[in-house]
Design a protein around this nucleic acid. Sequence first.
DNA 1: CAATACTAATTGCATTTTGCAACCGGTTGC
DNA 2: GCAACCGGTTGCAAAATGCAATTAGTATTG
Lengths: 168, 168
Amino acid sequence: MDGGHRSGCPINLTLEVVGDKWSLLIIRDMIFGNRRHFREMLKSEEGISSNILADRLKTLVDEGIITKADDPSHKQKTVYSLTEKGIELLPILAQMAVWGRKYLPVTEELSIRAQLLEEGGPALWSEFMDELRETHLGAAPRNGARQGPSVAARLQAAYEAVVARRGV
Amino acid sequence: MDGGHRSGCPINLTLEVVGDKWSLLIIRDMIFGNRRHFREMLKSEEGISSNILADRLKTLVDEGIITKADDPSHKQKTVYSLTEKGIELLPILAQMAVWGRKYLPVTEELSIRAQLLEEGGPALWSEFMDELRETHLGAAPRNGARQGPSVAARLQAAYEAVVARRGV
DNA sequence: CAATACTAATTGCATTTTGCAACCGGTTGC
DNA sequence: GCAACCGGTTGCAAAATGCAATTAGTATTG
């Protein structure tokens, strides 16, 4: 009747899908690190192991959060892309970043992106999500899209500036 | 050196603390259901078992997200309260509720609160968090506090109206 | 054209976490 | 005095996780 769900509460259902220690980190790497291939994701900051990564990618595909396709440039490569459902996880990640930055022992270089995202607020998240729709869904740039460097590029530049200032 | 953390990324650190299937449900019940005692929390919609509940409450206390105190009205009762750190998890829950309501098979009576929270936006979340500071931290009402029924009361009334309309 | 490195995973196995049900000593209200 | 309630604890089975080695096929390099 209910597909084996514990309850029909939206928070509970969300936790049933992404309430583990790895799924949202994979989404984070896809969104902020533009990682699209298995080997790239395997090099996550936190050291995910290959069996867990393979399992989570399968689950995320089944849940409609990402899609999987052959990479035309390399017969053995697989490209993973975010769906609209996956792109809209960004506000959850953003709020987690706000909370983590405020209350947990973050490192400066890994939280500079979170700081910019917090300062930019929902307007910046929205701009970023539009970029992700272009990158992952092949959507056309939205009307009135901002000129200049993309949100992804600005976040990356800020990260690299911190790394450069503080040394490798 | 780093207290055993996988990385200093704010999203990762947040997931290390609340990245499981139960912790945020306990917080949800404390925030939206005003559940403060062990036996109340045990009756969660999803059926948490007592050993898991005891374990998670201990962890949440250790992490500074909730506090534990004797209930003066009953020698054997323990009252759990949210800390400021715990209250500020509300935006994460709210975003999860938005996403879950949009993409997962929620039930109407369990998502009406999420709908009101989404419509009210960050301003309503902020008002709700101020109420929680009064209830859990003994804070004074903020200046210019809204008159009339509290956010908690409004959410509860909306829930009960749906239940009444649709039958038990 | 053979050696090497890279691709997305899979396998086996040990450890950890979860879930279930029964149980516990003490307290409270009737 | 007794049933219901209090916050847990215990024992045990099942599931999830973590690690290291391995796989079969593909691309690059000398």
